[in-house]
Write a protein that binds this DNA or RNA. Structure first.
Lengths: 359, 359
DNA sequence: GTGAAAGCGCTAACAC
DNA sequence: GTGTTAGCGCTTTCAC
């Protein structure tokens, strides 16, 4: 069949014009159909859709972005994807973004100022319609560049008071209070807390929730029971050692995140203390790793996945209606009891007459 | 100052034309400078660069992609970002992509055909310049859509023989041989293997490497010592149980990936077997989790980060010179000895006169 | 309700 | 070497 087009190997993909021709309409109509403009005649709609299908037409987003001024791209800035806190967040972010016809553009700062700046410029050069700043310690001047373009931003916990900016609020109190209650029931009274870096809002919030809950439960909290960490495994090890130097070390430790808790467990392991027999520990975040530890870690769960999806929702709201920041109810945290907490050693002796059971 | 421009709040970002005007050159020259075309006069170059800096000009990639036909976007298709195998891979992919001026577009199939198809269409509609298919079980017809557009693809281990396609080769033998050797030295002779799904190339390769190395070391391998798994924690648990039902269970188990090893450890824990005292286990991949387990897992390390960066390099080579597939030497694997392997119980008794030391 | 036409910001021929 | 110009594929007025 010599008249037929040459073999399909370098087939060019169809553009909107081809679809229009094949459907016998103008390309404006095709565009309207694809963008769900309601004023299109149902018959034409059907016809266009059929052709779209048949030709396997996929719209070129570069082109549509260029002319419409909306890239349908949301940036998400994180510290480092190998930090187990982030994958789940990204999963939530990406899934929700795709759901509403957006794409996620991930940028890792890698804790490096140079990377951060590059990251911001990449987002700018791809014209993101919004950015979720899920990392801390990013320099404010960099964020100003988004602000200058009126690009919406969303943060965790606390956002700079500015237009087109939202925050995903997290209710730390609930989970931490449950954690303390859980420990109290097991007979623990000396409960240590390893915080995150004090200059981070989220770290402060968690610490405050801890102090508040201790007060609410009527447990005395001495200053030596709070140690500052920095969310890393190492800081958990250091924190543990600091506690061990006390005349009376805590019988339970609550950590500001799971990585810190892992550090505590490693240090305890090295010190030949058995967890949970000699020391109970509770983490925070419930990264998937925690479930897989042996025995698994008791932790305060915060849905990172939901943080991601909420970030997208907020950004979306901000894009659609640039005046109103999306206000969501705070994300709840709650205790997941697994096997790194146990009744306090000697608790039974202290409470003669009472029967305590292992849980 | 009434004459001044209104406050900066809705400042539009500068385009190439503004830069050209400010630098007193044509916009073609600016474009040339930005794209490192060498024929530009050094004086003009400097001037343009200075203006670029001053105006904080960031090129609009949508526009340049549209006209140049290159999006500077590489897609990477994975199964699920919360599978600990992937974050490191993505990290390597993204880092290298950014390094060469590209962006990474991540697509998760979530083990779901619908997601997969959407994923492919997203990549197509964003005009990716290449795709790294790092997941298995993606339907070939979908990949044909990339092939039809002559979009380069890269795979792990084995690629369909086709133009514009490359594979990242991994040398499994080296690491697995080390693992078996390590176990043999510890006195293990009955070594079990839990494979990945038999219909996956990479799973086959690992199993073959195991069989080969066992033969090379002169260790007899009975059929009952190989169990098929599917790379999940559950399959590790099931595999362990299968081994336990044997008259003589293995004294050591090598798993096809770390998740499987974790499953084995969980099941052993439940069965009140102590690892490594009663059973040695070795994983494969060295996901970061393995390091953090208590005690940490002995495993065959494969640099997922490097798989990612090599994928980008291959794609890049394919884009630059569409005829030649990038050929890299195979990625090496090697044993990381940690604390989940130990001398076989009773090995000392079997070898009277020899002194064995714990390592 | 539909079509024609004017660009979005940039690159790549092509002149000069 | 540098500038001019014609689009890339699409959305969006604006007429009709």
């Amino acid at each position: 069949m010599p008249r037929k087009r040459k073999a399909a190997s370098k087939e060019k993909r169809p553009d909107i014009r081809e679809v229009a021709t094949a459907a016998g309409v103008s390309l404006a109509t095709v565009s309207r159909v694809l963008n769900n403009v309601s004023t299109v005649d149902e018959k034409l709609r059907k016809r266009v859709l059929a052709v779209t299908e048949k030709l396997r037409y996929v719209p070129n987003r570069q082109a549509s972005s260029l002319v419409s001024g909306r890239s349908r791209l949301f940036g998400v800035i994180i510290s480092d994807i190998t930090n187990p806190f982030f994958p789940e967040l990204i999963q939530g972010f990406e899934a929700r973004a795709v759901e509403i016809g957006y794409e996620a553009l991930i940028g890792s700062t890698n804790y490096d100022p140079k990377s951060m700046e590059l990251c911001v410029e990449r987002m700018l050069s791809r014209n993101v319609d919004g950015v979720a700043v899920m990392t801390f310690g990013i320099e404010t001047p960099l964020l100003e560049r988004f602000a200058a373009q009126r690009i919406p931003m969303v943060f965790i916990d606390e956002a700079p008071a500015r237009q087109l900016t939202a925050a995903i609020k997290v209710d730390y109190d609930h989970g931490i209070q449950q954690a303390i209650q859980h420990l109290a029931v097991l007979g623990h009274r000396r409960i240590g807390f390893i915080s995150g870096p004090k200059d981070l809002r989220s770290a402060q919030s968690r610490l405050e929730a801890f102090k508040k809950s201790m007060g609410a439960l009527g447990i005395k909290l001495s200053a030596e029971m709070v140690v500052e960490g920095n969310y890393t495994i190492e800081s958990g090890q250091i924190g543990f050692q600091a506690f061990q130097r006390l005349t009376t070390p805590p019988s339970a430790i609550i950590c500001s995140n799971d990585m810190t808790a892992i550090g505590v467990m490693h240090a305890a392991f090295d010190a030949e203390l058995s967890i949970p027999r000699d020391l109970s520990v509770i983490g925070f975040d419930d990264i998937s790793l925690s479930r897989h530890l042996l025995p698994p870690l008791t932790t305060v769960r915060m849905s990172c996945n939901e943080i991601g999806s909420r970030a997208v929702d907020s950004l979306h709201a901000l894009v659609e209606d640039r005046s109103r920041a999306a206000i969501n109810s705070a994300l709840l945290t709650s205790l997941v009891v697994r096997q790194r907490t146990d009744i306090r050693q000697g608790a039974l002796a202290d409470l003669p007459g009472k029967k305590a059971k292992r849980i």
